[in-house]
């Protein structure tokens, strides 16, 4: 537990903790239900679109199911990147929230937005150093989690 200190202004006779409690009580609330619903619907739509792509790739182009799902993921990543480059992804995301952030669209957005942001600093110090600035955490903890889960599953079997 961190120590509670008074606010260093004689005009506010509250401790820092009391002030933060006052702030929390008064601050405008995020409408969680609306955000969850929007994420559920938009995320679900993206996944349905992915399924549609898999069907098209396997039925129309004759790819195996594995190949078709890889191609579908690549397509969705491409669309996420394209929408980021066109400057509309962030506008859709402010509505859809996690619905757009959790699927690979969010991953594509985090990398392309970083690349766009840092391209002025050049290929090495800009794009190269910053491309995984936001996505790095997803990759690291994704790989670590996959490894641990894989290990547990192989031990249990």
């Amino acid at each position: 537990m961190s120590q509670d200190k008074p606010i260093n202004s004689p005009r506010v006779k509250l401790s820092q903790k009391q002030y933060q409690q006052m702030v929390d009580a008064k601050k405008p609330k995020v409408n969680l239900l609306s955000r969850i619903l929007r994420a559920f619907i938009s995320g679900g739509l993206i996944c349905c679109f992915g399924e549609l792509l898999i069907n098209v790739y396997s039925d129309v182009f004759g790819l195996t199911h594995d190949m078709a799902s890889n191609a579908a993921v690549a397509t969705v990543i491409f669309l996420g990147a394209l929408l980021t480059g066109l400057g509309v992804f962030d506008k859709i995301a402010s509505f859809a929230g996690a619905g757009l952030a959790v699927p690979v669209t969010g991953f594509a957005n985090s990398m392309v937005s970083s690349a766009l942001e840092y391209k002025r600093e050049g290929l090495i110090y800009g794009i190269g150093s910053h491309l995984f600035g936001l996505a790095g955490s997803v990759i690291l903890y994704g790989v670590v989690t996959a490894f641990v889960v894989g290990l547990v599953v192989s031990l249990v079997r």
Partner: peptide, 17 residues
Amino acid sequence: ERQFRYPVEYGMQRPPY
């Protein structure tokens, strides 16, 4: 935004405050 928060085109929901 880039210095204090996230890239300009990064998609996120901001709190109302």
